[in-house]
Computed example of a mutant assay.
Amino acid sequence: MFERFTASARGTVVRAQEEAADAGDHHVGTEHVVVALAQDDGVAGAVLRDAGVTAESLRRWLRQVPADDESSGRLDADALQSIGIDLDDVRRRVEETFGAGALDDVPDRTGGRRWGRHKHIPFTGRAKKSLERGLRQAIMLGDTRIGSEHLLLGVLDEGSGLGIRMLRDVGVDLAQLRATAVERSRRSA
């Protein structure tokens, strides 16, 4: 499928992985895809910017709002504290037993991938689903290539990831965003 992506869409996927790495996440979620789309020079980026969305405003939102395990995998330290689990204490105990940095990412025994800025970070199920839905959107619109606008429509179609929650919380009218993306996609074809 990746070979059908435009340069803009490929750049979005790469930027999404970079966003995840920069955030210290071990996955690429719909939230990372949306932040990457906000940086796009193509249709998706223009549509998001016209809706008042910037990559920095989305990053700020991500830093302020704890995510649930299904959408990002990050733990909410306050929620765990409320049930008597202190993450700092857990880290200290693990490091006492297994050594400093035992919870940090390391290569597996076979020399497999290590998470980092230039390494592959896996996509969550929702992010994969949004990419697949982007392909469907391209087909429905009669396009032979998958552009950034199709990726945006795919995220909107997936409809339940952190990317959608983030867009709603920053005040985006999702129905209007979809309509604008479809209209501009047809104009750019």
Rank of each mutant, 00 (worst) to 15 (best):
G99E: 00
S71K: 09
R59Y: 03
S71P: 06
L80G: 03
A179M: 07
R92H: 12
S185L: 15
V34L: 07
R178A: 05
F2Y: 03
R4N: 09
R93C: 02
I121V: 14
D86M: 06
A79W: 03
R187W: 11
L141K: 01
A7L: 11
F2S: 00
I83G: 00
R113F: 01
V53P: 08
V106A: 12
G52I: 07
L48V: 09
G11Y: 14
A102E: 08
R93L: 14
P122I: 05
G159E: 07
V34N: 14
A16T: 13
R63N: 07
V94D: 02
D50L: 04
G42Q: 08
V47T: 12
L156H: 02
A127P: 11
G24M: 13
S188L: 01
Q81M: 01
R74E: 08
V34W: 06
L131D: 03
V106M: 03
L156T: 03
G73P: 00
V106T: 11
Q137I: 00
E19H: 07
I83Y: 02
E56T: 13
E132G: 04
S8G: 06
E96D: 15
R74K: 08
H120Q: 10
T12P: 03
F5T: 01
V34F: 05
A51D: 07
G134Y: 10
R49S: 10
R63I: 00
E3G: 11
A181R: 04
R92L: 12
A67Y: 02
F2E: 01
G73S: 02
I164E: 06
E18I: 01
A20K: 01
E183H: 14
I85Y: 12
D68R: 11
R92K: 09
S57Y: 02
V182E: 15
H32D: 02
G45M: 13
S82H: 04
A16E: 08
F98V: 06
L153S: 12
V94R: 01
D143I: 00
S57A: 11
P122E: 04
S188M: 04
G99Q: 01
T12G: 07
R109S: 00
A21G: 08
D78M: 00
A36M: 08
E56C: 09
R92S: 12
H26I: 09
L162T: 06
A102C: 08
